[in-house]
Design a protein around this nucleic acid. Structure first.
Length: 720
DNA sequence: GACGGAATCGTTTTT
DNA sequence: CGATTCCGTC
């Protein structure tokens, strides 16, 4: 293979990025600008041209999907296996490091990864143990606190011991949580990253080994890295000028879960000699769509700056539909979809994108009644299902009896006569002697501290778990163990009893789990010498599995704007574009969050290849109440000439595009439908308003006094 | 421990 | 409004 294969398919900016000499690089890759291609070709370039062994290359992504795709494309391009190349997610790679160096990381060999659900359960139990009021310290909040600290690299022991009571209690739980995890050999997602960072930081010879090994380090979606992930990358690349990051500050939409957009801004300071390359040519959308996206995102500040352009034509205008209400909105969207399909379009090329999951319902109902196949993304994934987690907990407990989370989960699922009393005694014993629940159980049996019935039940449970371990040690195939587990545990029995539909699918899922274990590809890199069972459990924890559903079917795609990132569709419907929904209510008074919402809107717009249709409802039933939202401010930020307002039926026409009826955009705190109280006239509902500032008048329908116009400047109105 | 009624509470999600 | 969770009863 020669250079041309690597270089020819690229544009000038992409070539520059791919062929640049080794140095710190920031590729600012706009939506649809071919960022994965650059990453893949850059890696291929290193291997092919610079003769760097795949073994010496590291590539980090956020999702397993991205990691798999990248490996596959590199192999395809190079026509060779790149198995020895480290490509994976931050979490996957961290896990790999920890497995290989569990001693240095001060982890037991049998350590298990737990997901956020397990983590939450542990926290709930700790709160109970410590007798902390879970209304003042809600478990979810405590979980957020702990993860937040870990993401910043802060352990409980690093935190100041003084502070108010609220803080003191949080700290107490954090400490107890760390102790419990250490004792149980459990590692949460944030811990994977933190510990991997500490591992390298505190073991200089290890660090230098890996720094030498990873001659080139590549990062995808760099704008989504959090503090500890970036710190880890810096450790690995410090002084080597070999960090190649690809990202787009305009597509940073995960600030709320710890992503630091600042990382991409600080890159220039941390790597002063870096080379920055902008990929601005877009291969996805029409000129109109790109103009809209550019104009919208220009309203954000402190951007690195970027303007998308295309050789493609202008294409169709962006359609804008003002629906009466959410039902009408769904009706309109589905009619447009049916029209597209009637004209020969594919359903799979269509996406309905919304801000929040709850919005999918209207569309689903409409799609259902019109018998239009659709698929909703999001929701529970295979390994997150309760029945699956229960079955896996048996396996985990057999692999690591210290795993208290799994113990709690299955000790009485299905019920086997181990009651609250027995469990409480066990927990107290475990806490007082710093034992795992398993050890406490054995102790209680050994010392005959239990009534006969409970003792028998507990003994049976322990035997069940031990049996799984023994059979596995005897090289029983994994799927046989799984089969054994779901039968011997009584899980199948339990779900068969569960009423009709639900129980049936659960049993099916359990059978599917056996099947998954049978088909599991144990060959996929296992340099760490893990047992089948550990490999499978790791897979389950780190890759929760594809969202259910058959991607192959010709279905309309429904998903949140977040879930749409990285995807593209010929037809995109961005719905519910209203103040309070998008941007969301809680972002309205926070400039930072508002900008993130704007970036989310930018992501939404840039998903569309051929046509973008935006809709909003003038009235929406939300939480059982009618609301009368104003159209989103983002609409005003799209140049009017790019928009074409659609009217389905004859009705009072309003000025073209989003041109405001006054009330739509007034800064007034009085919205249509708003309940107000007036000193003299009593309670009423705002009907309409006109004028601005001092001139603003509102029309109100008072319960007693009837309909009146009032000057806002003079009338003393109180919102209710 | 199962069931049902009441209370509660409403972004976004990957690992 | 509707899903989820919690609590009390049998």
């Amino acid at each position: 293979m020669d250079v041309s294969t690597l270089i020819n398919p690229l544009n000038d900016a992409q070539r520059l990025a791919v062929s640049a000499p080794s140095q710190a690089m920031l590729v600012l890759a706009g939506a649809g600008s071919g960022k994965t291609r650059v990453l893949v070709h850059r890696i291929a370039w290193h291997i092919q041209i610079n003769h760097i062994a795949p073994h010496n290359i590291l590539a980090v992504t956020f999702t397993n999907k991205a990691a798999h795709e990248m490996r596959q494309r590199v192999e395809e391009l190079l026509q060779m296996s790149a198995r020895s190349m480290w490509i994976g997610t931050f979490h996957g790679l961290a896990h790999r490091l920890l497995r290989q160096h569990c001693k240095e990381a001060r982890l037991p060999e049998t350590f298990q990864v737990m997901d956020s659900d397990d983590q939450l359960r542990i926290i709930k139990r700790l709160l109970k143990n410590l007798q902390i009021d879970d209304t003042k310290w809600p478990p979810k909040m405590v979980q957020g606190f702990i993860n937040g600290q870990k993401e910043e690299g802060i352990r409980a022991r690093h935190m100041p011991g003084h502070g108010d009571f609220f803080y003191q209690q949080l700290l107490l739980v954090y400490k107890a949580y760390e102790e419990l995890c250490d004792r149980s050999g459990l590692v949460d997602f944030a811990e994977l990253l933190l510990r991997a960072h500490e591992l390298l930081r505190d073991n200089p010879e290890l660090l230098s080994f890996y720094k030498q090994r990873f001659q080139q380090v590549h990062v995808d979606e760099f704008q989504d890295t959090n503090t500890i992930q970036y710190a880890w990358l810096r450790l690995l690349t410090e002084g080597n000028n070999n960090l190649f990051v690809v990202g787009d500050d305009d597509q940073s939409i995960y600030g709320w879960r710890g992503a630091k957009i600042e990382n991409i801004y600080q890159f220039r300071d941390h790597y002063p000699d870096h080379l920055m390359i902008r990929l601005e040519q877009n291969y996805r959308s029409t000129g109109t769509i790109l103009k809209a996206a550019n104009a919208l995102i220009a309203h954000n500040d402190s951007r690195l700056g970027k303007e998308l352009w295309t050789h493609a034509g202008e294409g169709q205008a962006i359609a804008l539909y003002a629906a009466f209400n959410e039902q009408d909105e769904a009706y309109f969207v589905v009619e447009k979809i049916r029209q597209w399909v009637r004209e020969g379009g594919s359903r799979r090329d269509i996406a309905i994108l919304y801000r929040s999951n709850a919005q999918s319902r209207q569309f689903e109902e409409r799609l259902m009644t019109t018998a239009t196949p659709y698929r909703v993304y999001g929701g529970l994934r295979f390994f997150e299902r309760m029945e699956i987690k229960n079955a896996l907990a048996y396996l985990r407990l057999s692999a690591n009896p210290l795993d208290d989370a799994s113990f709690e989960r299955v000790v009485n699922t299905p019920t086997r006569g181990i009651g609250t009393k027995t469990l409480d005694d066990m927990r107290i014993l475990a806490r007082d002697r710093s034992l795992s629940l398993w050890q406490a159980a054995e102790w209680m049996l050994h010392e005959a501290l239990l009534p006969a019935r409970a003792a028998t039940a507990l003994n049976n449970f322990l035997s069940l778990i031990k049996n799984i371990g023994i059979q596995n040690a005897q090289h029983e195939a994994l799927y046989e163990s799984v089969q054994h587990v779901i039968e011997a545990s009584g899980l199948i029995e339990l779900y068969k009893k569960e009423k009709q539909d639900k129980g049936e699918t659960r049993v099916e899922n359990l059978e599917e789990l056996v099947n998954a274990a049978r088909l599991f590809d144990f060959d996929t890199d296992n340099p760490d010498n893990l047992s089948d069972i550990d490999l499978f459990l790791t897979h389950a924890a780190l890759e929760a599995g594809e969202m259910q559903g058959d991607a192959d079917d010709d279905c309309v795609q429904l998903m949140t704007l977040h879930a749409a990132k990285g995807l593209e569709f010929k037809q995109v419907f961005m719905v519910g574009v209203e103040e309070g929904l998008f941007p969301s209510q809680q972002a309205l008074d926070d400039p930072g969050r508002l900008q993130e919402e704007r970036r989310l809107c930018y992501v939404g717009i840039t998903r569309a290849m051929q046509q973008l249709t935006i809709s909003y409802a003038e009235s929406r039933r939300l939480y059982g109440k009618d609301s009368y939202p104003r159209p989103s401010r983002f609409l005003k930020e799209i140049p009017t000439e790019l928009l074409e307002e659609i009217r389905l039926r004859a009705q009072v026409s309003r000025p073209a595009s989003i041109a405001p009826t006054t009330q739509s955009y007034s800064q007034s705190r009085f919205r249509i439908g708003q309940m107000v109280r007036h000193e003299k006239f009593g309670e009423g509902v705002v009907l309409q308003s006109e004028g601005d500032g001092e001139q603003e008048r509102v029309q109100i329908n008072f319960r007693q006094a009837g309909i009146k116009w009032l000057m806002l400047a003079f009338a003393k109105l109180e919102t209710l």
